[in-house]
Structures are given as structure tokens and as C-alpha cells.
């Protein structure tokens, strides 16, 4: 019968100080390949729609006429399929996640290519 087996561990915890990452105060560093959110370099995009077709969660809508690429962040499961399938490699996975939102619509990230400058509607930026 052994008691206080845990004592060593908890005392060490007490004296070593907390292991907490103190997240909001201190930013978390992510690895390069962390799947955070999908980004599109809209200048390169050819609006082929392959990504939208492949998306398992129907998060992407691409409109060739309006030259518009929209991702619904609340639908995207960051599976990377679109990135893999993109013929011009304009899609990439950013390593920071998309922050929580209170309204559904604010999670819609629209990117439209209008010559000469790209209009970016992204609440995160």
C-alpha cells in the first residue's frame, strides 16, 4: 500500500511554475505546415473552379464571370484538397487559424479580381 505517490509530481509542478502557454497574452507559434486556413493569391487565380468541385464540404464558390472566389470559413475543414488540386498553385494553407465569429456572414471571405487591384473582403485582415 503506497500513498502519496503523486506527491513528487505535484510538488515539482508547484515549484517549477505553471506550464500554461498563457495563450491570449502570448501568441502561439505554429509550425510551417499547420493547417490553419486557406488563402488565395487572387492575382494568380484563373477561376477554374476545380477547387470548388473537389471541396468535400462545399465551402468554396468560384464565379468565373465576376472573377470571384469565396470561401466560407465556417464550412472549410482545411483538408488541403483544394490546395493539392489547384492547377496554378494560387491556393495555400496559412498556418494561423481563422478566429471565431459571432455572425455567420462575417465568416464569408470574398476575393474578387478587378483590374487593376484586387478587392479583398476578409474580416481577419
Amino acid at each position: 500500500m503506497r500513498i502519496f505517490v503523486m506527491a513528487k509530481t505535484v510538488l515539482r509542478n508547484l515549484f517549477q511554475g505553471p506550464a500554461t502557454l498563457m495563450y491570449p497574452k502570448r501568441k502561439r507559434v505554429y509550425t510551417a505546415i499547420t493547417r490553419g486556413r486557406i488563402e488565395n493569391e487572387i492575382e494568380k487565380c484563373i477561376f477554374c473552379g476545380l477547387c470548388a468541385k473537389r471541396c468535400p464540404t462545399y465551402a468554396l464558390t468560384v464565379s468565373k464571370e465576376n472573377k470571384e472566389w469565396v470561401v466560407d470559413r465556417l464550412k472549410c475543414c482545411i483538408c488541403n484538397l483544394c490546395v493539392e488540386v489547384c492547377p496554378v498553385k494560387c491556393l495555400s494553407t496559412h498556418n494561423h487559424y481563422f478566429s471565431p465569429v459571432t455572425e455567420r456572414l462575417t465568416a464569408l471571405c470574398k476575393k474578387r479580381l478587378e483590374a487593376p487591384t484586387a478587392v479583398v473582403v476578409d474580416p481577419q485582415q
Partner: peptide, 30 residues
């Protein structure tokens, strides 16, 4: 949101702990 009025949406598959913390702090404001 098909069932209950949702106040905060935390995206991510699976949602990251940081994201959950953000979401809950946002919920506090609400």
C-alpha cells in the same frame, strides 16, 4: 443553429484550443 440560436461560431476541424479560448472569451462579452 438549426436547433438553437448560436452566438459564437468557432471554426476549425478540429477547432484548435486557442480558437476555443477565443470563442469562449467572445461568448463572455455576449
Amino acid at each position: 443553429d438549426k436547433v438553437l440560436p448560436v452566438d459564437v461560431y468557432v471554426p476549425g476541424c478540429a477547432a484548435r484550443p486557442e480558437s476555443i479560448i477565443d470563442g469562449i472569451l467572445k461568448a463572455c462579452e455576449i
